[in-house]
Each structure stands twice: as structure tokens, then as C-alpha cells.
Design a protein around this nucleic acid. Structure first.
Length: 585
RNA sequence: GGGCGAGUAGCUCAGUGGAUUAGAGCAUUUGGCUACGAACCAAAAGGUCAGGGGUUCAAAUCCCUUCUCGCUCACCA
């Protein structure tokens, strides 16, 4: 289905064309929904912007546009307000028709993109031998939501987990274990992940303080990259152990990912560097092989390099990222590559993208997008640091969220005198708790820093997952109470919309398509959250004001359809965020 | 010092050029359960959109500038 917004845009564009000719063929019709119901449902501001080029009074222009508009089916006669705003009010029978259309469609009228194209979403990407922390949580939750949205829209999405299983940090750990806990390098699961984390910290301290150890660690990386068997074996053991830990989190959060770590690109690193050499971009500087960048300078104003081969001969993450781009373009056939990482890596990606373009590794027609997100701050507003100690353990965090939800649920059950099975309680607590964590993260604009606050995150009121879940539960309560099968509702009945609350809800349901399409390009899932929250509010108002089960026909069926469409929109919307609904809670 | 980002109600945040009155939620105050689940709804109160210039018929939004805060600036990722 073409969204109402798109229909109006097309109509206004057509009217501009027939009224003023071809010069206005590419003029943005400036249609948007109104921010105040007294101005109708949609508005176009195009007349004001045309006043100067056309040398006419904007109200006169608006009048001319209206005279050429052909939208009798959708709208009442448009009106002119203020300086020259054109206001559109949808006809209620047209709204009813649209609702009937989406009612019979599993996708609620939202089309798939044509033609299908391939998108890689690179997200989560924890580091081997380290525990996942809240920063990975953001990447994981946001990346998963973006992948789900694009999948729903019909893109061929490849979800890649670019795990940190290579590089200097790794040599550092193996070098340290070799001297401190050699058995860990030969025996599976000799240490648990918590030990590995603290050993990593110790190794890091030595690496920073002890020049000799630093050299040893770097040599270890080189040995690894050269394929030394004992190093590889140790590395494999550590990876497997970490992998099991990650999977616990992914299972809990219902995240599907294909692991393709940095090491995967190891065989291609040398070729990548020689390719750069052939293009003439490569230069040696202070012993390292670099490509100097445009627009990046150091303190003295000199150009900054992207280092692709270190003085010791080892490669680094820039090399890996370049090799990964090449592989993803040539082998995976990606049309677009999305990287979901923290905003601090903005410079790195800008540099890598620039070099990849220059070197011809990244063709013009392939899009690369860094999707940054803000820092994770503690409740005190200070950064929760990755490498310097105190991190929130993800598993504990998630468990705590579920426990909180369970306590709250049990209190409520007691207060209401309800008896539920332990299975029900566990399931509801788990869904509510994990949803709350995901939703708290997704409902904020991802570019801003994220203040990590248990109380706020687990608050069951306001713009939170439980509010939406509860709105959904209410819709299902209607069908239970009235013994009504929503899916069996007659979709040939004319939908009658008379009350304000009905109309407001109906129009808002129809805007979901616009929101999904907007998020598809902006990659800001918080827009979906905001929409779902407002939809739930409008439903609650409708629910409060309009009797449903005891209404007379044809109101009753119309209202049941509204309830069903609300429910399906919430369910679909939440599924795009990786959140499951509950029938009862 | 350079680059990037941020500064909107007591708190957490929406809002990437449009309308007398800048929006939510939380917290505060008040009202509503013998209609489908009150985890709800209704109402009140709360703002020189960091400051100053500019562009525009129209600026929280675009440009310039100052201030404050954060992230980042070659062999970690």
C-alpha cells in the first residue's frame, strides 16, 4: 500500500506540475502531518516556498494548487490557513477503507522493497577473552533492531559478528598466559571466563608498563598471524570458551548472528596491503606502512596516516577492516554495509572508508554507513570504561532485570488475589525484564549518550516496554472477555468511525507505514518506539472512551477491528525491535 | 590545538525549516474503578530551547561566533 503521506505528496506534485508546468517537476511538495489537529491531518507548505520564485502571493499559489488537486476520494476540500498553508483533512470513510485493506494483510499494508538488495549489518562484535559489557549490549540491541527492520522491508540481510579474535590484545593475553598459566593454553576450559577477564587486565598492565613484555606480546601476534601451531591451538581454545559465553547472552536476547571474526580476514591482509601498494597510495613513515588521509591532521596540522602495517610487520584493525570491505563487496555482494559501533570510532571508519574508496576496494555504488551510538554512562553520568576495570557484567544485568520484573509481578498477583503457575510467572518475568532492557536502550536517540540506570530502565511506567505490553494485553483481554476471534472478523464490513477517539486512533494506525519507511533510511529505531508509545496512548484513550463489547452494531465490529489492528501494529512494531508480546501479564 | 558530538521543564528525553500556546514520560498537586485488565485515563503546574549575531515570509532546527561538557587525534580495537 502506498502510505497516505506518499499519496498526498504525489497528488501535490501532480497539481504543481499541471498548475505551473515542468519547472516545478522536482519541487518537494513539503507535505507533512500536522502538529495540531485543528489544522487537519496533513499539510503542505509548498506555497510559501514558491512565493519568491513564482513572484506571487502564497495564498494565491495555494489556491491555484488546490484547484488542480485531485484528491476528492481521500480528503475533504483542502483549506488555506495562515500565510498559505494547505490543510488536508482525511474523509472518515476513506480511513475506513484503508483500515479494511490493511486488516486483510499480514504485513499491515507495508510493502517489501523492490528490487531486493543485499545489506550487511555488522554489529555486537565483542572481544574474545573479555566479557561482554554494556557497550556491546547497545551495539547488539540496536544492530539487531536495524537488521530486523531491514529484513521486514525485504532486504537480504547478512548479520555479521565481527568479533575481536585477533590483534595485539590477543598476543598480549597469550604471552601472559604462557608465563603465568601455561595449562590454559593446552586444556579446554581450564580457566573460566571471569579468570580470563582478570588475567587480561593483568596482562594489559604488564603490556603498558613493561617494554620487554610489550615486545614479547607483539611477537606473539606475529607468530599467530604466521600460523604457529601452539599459538593457534591456544587461540582456538580461548575463542571456543568465549564463544560459549557470548551464546548465553545471544540466546537470552534472541539474537541471531553469523560469527565472522577478524581472524577470518587474516589470509587476505597481505593482499590488501599489496593492493594498496599498487595503487601508489602506500607510504612508509616511521617504519610503518601507511596511507595518508585527506582532511585528517594532527596537532601540528600535518596529515594523519591510516596505518595498515605496523613496524613489526603485523597488521592492525585498519587492515582487517579494509580486507573485510573488499570481501563483503566482492564475495558477499553487498550493496550496503552498516557498522553499528560506538561514536568514538567515527574517525576510524571515516578514514577506512576514504582509503577504501581511493583504492577502488569500495565501488561508488556500494554504500557504507557507520551507525554510531553514544557512550554508556553510569548513573553518576560518568563513563563506564571498557578496559580499565569496572564493567557491568551483562549476564548479571539481565538477570537483575528479570528478577526485578518477577518481584513486581508477584507483588501484583498477590494484591489482585491471582494464582498463576510458576511457568507463567517465569515467562512473564523474563519477557518483561528483557524487553524493558531492550526498550530502554532503543527508545533513546542512539546518537546521545545512554545513562544506564536500573531504576529507570526497569520502571514499569511511562514510555517503557511494559506500558506497550500492557496495551497489547488489554486488546487481547477484549477478545478473551467477548470470546471473539479477531482473525475471523468480517473484513467486508464497512468500518464506521464517528467518535474522536476512534478517528484519532484509526489515523494513527495508518501512519505506521510512514514510520517504518522513515526508520529504514534514518536507522533511528527510537522513532518506532515513540510511535508505538503514542499508539498505545491513543488506544488507551479509545479504550477509556468507547465501549466495545457492549456497543451496538455497526460500531461493535468497527471497534473490534480497531482493537485488532492496534494489537497487530504493536506486535509487529515490537517484533521489529526484537521484543515479544504477551497475551496476559 | 584539530576533528566529531552534545547543551531543550526539577530529572530522563522527543523534536534534522513552518502557524495564537516548543512536546512527552518521571517526580509534584487534583479528580476518575457496579463498561471490555486502574501497569489506565482526565486535569493542573513547570521553559529567555546555553549566550550573542546572521540568513529567511518563517529558526530549537540552517550559517557564524562565544561559553560549558564529552569523545577522539600513528603503530589497541
Amino acid at each position: 500500500m502506498t502510505s497516505i503521506l506518499e499519496q498526498l505528496q504525489d497528488s501535490v506534485s501532480q497539481a504543481l506540475l499541471s498548475a505551473f508546468g515542468d519547472e516545478l517537476a522536482n519541487t518537494d511538495p513539503l507535505v507533512a502531518s500536522t502538529n495540531n489537529p485543528k489544522f487537519g491531518d496533513y499539510q503542505s507548505n509548498v506555497a510559501l516556498s514558491l512565493a519568491k520564485p513564482l513572484q506571487q502571493n502564497p495564498r494565491a499559489i495555494a489556491q491555484t494548487i488546490i484547484a488542480h488537486l485531485q484528491i476528492e476520494d481521500m480528503c475533504e476540500t483542502p483549506t488555506i490557513a495562515g500565510a498559505g498553508f494547505i490543510n488536508f483533512t482525511l474523509k472518515s470513510n476513506y480511513i475506513g477503507q484503508l483500515l479494511s485493506q490493511i486488516q486483510s494483510d499480514e504485513r499491515l499494508g507495508i510493502p517489501r522493497v523492490q528490487p531486493e538488495s543485499k545489506v550487511i549489518v555488522d554489529f555486537s562484535s565483542p572481544n574474545i577473552a573479555k566479557e561482554m559489557h554494556v557497550g556491546h549490549l547497545r551495539s547488539t540491541i540496536i544492530g539487531d533492531a536495524i537488521a530486523r527492520i531491514l529484513e521486514f522491508r525485504g532486504y537480504d540481510v547478512l548479520r555479521l559478528n565481527h568479533v575481536g579474535d585477533w590483534g595485539t590484545q590477543f598476543g598480549m593475553l597469550i604471552a601472559y598466559l604462557r608465563e603465568a598459566y601455561p595449562q590454559a593454553l593446552t586444556t579446554a576450559n581450564a580457566l573460566d571466563i571471569g579468570d580470563l577477564v582478570s588475567l587480561y587486565k593483568q596482562a594489559k598492565v604488564r603490556f603498558d608498563e613493561d617494554e620487554e613484555f610489550k615486545q614479547t606480546a607483539r611477537q606473539e601476534v606475529v607468530r599467530l598471524q604466521a600460523g604457529a601451531e601452539d599459538s593457534l591451538h591456544a587461540w582456538q581454545l580461548l575463542c571456543n570458551q568465549s564463544r560459549q559465553e557470548f551464546q548465553v547472552i545471544y540466546d537470552l536476547l534472541d539474537i541471531k548472528l553469523e560469527e565472522r571474526g577478524e581472524s577470518f580476514y587474516n589470509p587476505f591482509l597481505e593482499d590488501t596491503v599489496s593492493e594498496l601498494k599498487q595503487t601508489g597510495l602506500l607510504e612508509e613513515s616511521e617504519g610503518a606502512m601507511c596511507v595518508f588521509l585527506d582532511g585528517f591532521t594532527n596537532k601540528d596540522g600535518d596529515p594523519l596516516p591510516l596505518i595498515v602495517q605496523k613496524t613489526d610487520g603485523g597488521f592492525n584493525y585498519a587492515t582487517t577492516d579494509l580486507a573485510a570491505i573488499k570481501y563483503r563487496v566482492k564475495e558477499d555482494g553487498a550493496n550496503k554495509i552498516i557498522y553499528v559501533t560506538d561514536a568514538g570510532q567515527g574517525n576510524h571508519f571515516a578514514a577506512v572508508f576514504q582509503v577504501a574508496r581511493k583504492a577502488g576496494i569500495l565501488p561508488d555504488e556500494v554504500q557504507v554507513v557507520h551507525v554510531p551510538f553514544g557512550l554508556v554512562l553510569g548513573k553518576d553520568g560518568k563513563r563506564i570504561k571498557t578496559r580499565s576495570g569496572e564493567t557491568v557484567k551483562l549476564k548479571n544485568l539481565l538477570d537483575e532485570a528479570v528478577d526485578y520484573a518477577r518481584t513486581e509481578l508477584e507483588t501484583r498477583l498477590t494484591a489482585e488475589g491471582r494464582k498463576e503457575t510458576p511457568e507463567f510467572i517465569n515467562y512473564v518475568a523474563q519477557t518483561t525484564g528483557l524487553s524493558a532492557v531492550k526498550y530502554a536502550d532503543l527508545s533513546q536517540n542512539r546518537t546521545s549518550d545512554y545513562k544506564f540506570d536500573f531504576d529507570k530502565m526497569l520502571d514499569l511506567k511511562g514510555n517503557t516496554a511494559p506500558y506497550l505490553l500492557y496495551a497489547y494485553v488489554r486488546t487481547q483481554g477484549i477478545s478473551r472477555k467477548g470470546n471473539i476471534d479477531f482473525s475471523a472478523l468480517d473484513n467486508n464490513t464497512e468500518i464506521v468511525l464517528k467518535e474522536d477517539a476512534e478517528l484519532v486512533l484509526a489515523k494513527y494506525i495508518l501512519q505506521f507505514e510512514e514510520v517504518v519507511k522513515e526508520v529504514e533510511s534514518s536507522l533511528l529505531p527510537n522513532r518506532i518506539c515513540l510511535y508505538l508509545f503514542e499508539l498505545s496512548q491513543k488506544f488507551n484513550q479509545f479504550y477509556e472512551q468507547c465501549e466495545i463489547l457492549n456497543a451496538a452494531e455497526p460500531q461493535k465490529t468497527s471497534r473490534l477491528i480497531l482493537a485488532d489492528l492496534t494489537a497487530r501494529t504493536i506486535k509487529l512494531g515490537l517484533s521489529l525491535l526484537g521484543i515479544n508480546v504477551l497475551e496476559r501479564m
